[in-house]
C-alpha cells in the first residue's frame, strides 16, 4: 500500500512540475495529488487497524500519520494561497515516506502503561509537526520569492507563487497553530511523565531538544512583528530543521521516547 502511495506521490510531483509551465495540467495535477492522498489515507487506515488505534506504535506508523496530516492541511490550503505550493511540499512528504519505508520495521514500541495524556501528547505533537511543515513550506516559498525580487530573476516559481504579504500571513498562521499544539503537546507530555516517571521533566535528550525547538518557534512567533521578513522565515526554517533533527536524529540517543 505504501509503495503504491509512494508511486502516486511520484506521479503527483511530476504533474505539479509540469503544471508550472502548463496551465492546462491543473486538473490532472489536482487529480494525481488527490489520488496520492487517497492512497495514503487507505494506507493509514490499514495501519490503524493493524495497530488497533492511533498509529503511534512505530516511527513508521507515525510518519504515515504525520505526513497525512500535513497533506490534509495542504489540500485545505491549496484552494487559496497555495496553488503550486505542492511542488515543495510533496517532495518533502514523499521523502519522509521513503524514510519510513527504508526504516527497519521495529516491533510496536508501544509505551506502557497507556493513558489519556499520552494520546493527547502524541496527537498534539503530531499536529504541531504537520503545521510546522506547512510553515516551513511557506517560509521556503517566501525566501525564494524574496530573493527573486531582490535579484530580479524571475523563474516559473516566481510567476506562480502568491504575493510576499500573503505568504507572510500564512506562515504566521501555520506557526501560531503549530506553536499552540506544540505547547499543548508538551504540557500533556509532562503531565504524562509525572504519572509514569513521577516527575514533570526528566532532562532526557528528546525533551531538551524539544524545549530548544519550542524556544526557537516562540522566538519566531514573538518576533514576528519586529523582525524583517527574511529573518523571520530564516528562523522558521532553522526551527524546522531542529525539529527534523529531533525526530530523526535524537532517536539514536537513548531515552524513554524511543522514536519520538
Amino acid at each position: 500500500m505504501l509503495f503504491l502511495t509512494l508511486g502516486a506521490y511520484g506521479v503527483a510531483i511530476y504533474d505539479q512540475v509540469r503544471l508550472l509551465h502548463k496551465e492546462e495540467m491543473a486538473r490532472r495535477a489536482a487529480f494525481s495529488t488527490y489520488l496520492a492522498f487517497s492512497l495514503q489515507t487507505l494506507a493509514l487506515l490499514a495501519r490503524m487497524i493493524a495497530e488497533r488505534g492511533f498509529p503511534g506504535g512505530t516511527l513508521y506508523g507515525w510518519i504515515l500519520f504525520f505526513t497525512w496530516l500535513a497533506a490534509t492541511l495542504y489540500l485545505i490550503g491549496q484552494k487559496g494561497a497555495f496553488r503550486n505550493g505542492g511542488i515543495f511540499l510533496l517532495p518533502i512528504l514523499a521523502s519522509f515516506l521513503l524514510v519510513a519505508v527504508l526504516l527497519p520495521e521495529k516491533a510496536a514500541a508501544r509505551p506502557s502503561p497507556e493513558g489519556l495524556w499520552l494520546w493527547v501528547h502524541l496527537s498534539a505533537i503530531t499536529l504541531s509537526y504537520a503545521a510546522m511543515t506547512f510553515a516551513a513550506l511557506t517560509a521556503l516559498m517566501y525566501m525564494h520569492e524574496e530573493q527573486s525580487l531582490r535579484w530580479k530573476i524571475f523563474g516559473a516559481f516566481y510567476r506562480r507563487f502568491p504575493p510576499l504579504a500573503t505568504l507572510d500571513v500564512w506562515t504566521r498562521r501555520a506557526l501560531l497553530f503549530g506553536w499552540i499544539t506544540l505547547t499543548a503537546g508538551m504540557v500533556a507530555g509532562s503531565l504524562w511523565a509525572k504519572i509514569v516517571w513521577g516527575s514533570f521533566w526528566n532532562w532526557n535528550p528528546k525533551e531538551v531538544w524539544t524545549l530548544l525547538d519550542w524556544g526557537l518557534f516562540s522566538m519566531a512567533l514573538g518576533g514576528w512583528g519586529y523582525l524583517t521578513g527574511r529573518k523571520k522565515v530564516f528562523l522558521v526554517l532553522v526551527a524546522y530543521a531542529v525539529a527534523l533533527l529531533n525526530v530523526f536524529g535524537v532517536d539514536l540517543l537513548s531515552g524513554p521516547h524511543r522514536y519520538f
Binding site: 520569492e145 525580487l149 516566481y158 502568491p162 504575493p163 510576499l164 504579504a165 500573503t166
Partner: peptide
Amino acid sequence: LARKVFGD
C-alpha cells in the same frame, strides 16, 4: 511587482 510584494 508592487502586487507581488504587497498583495492587495
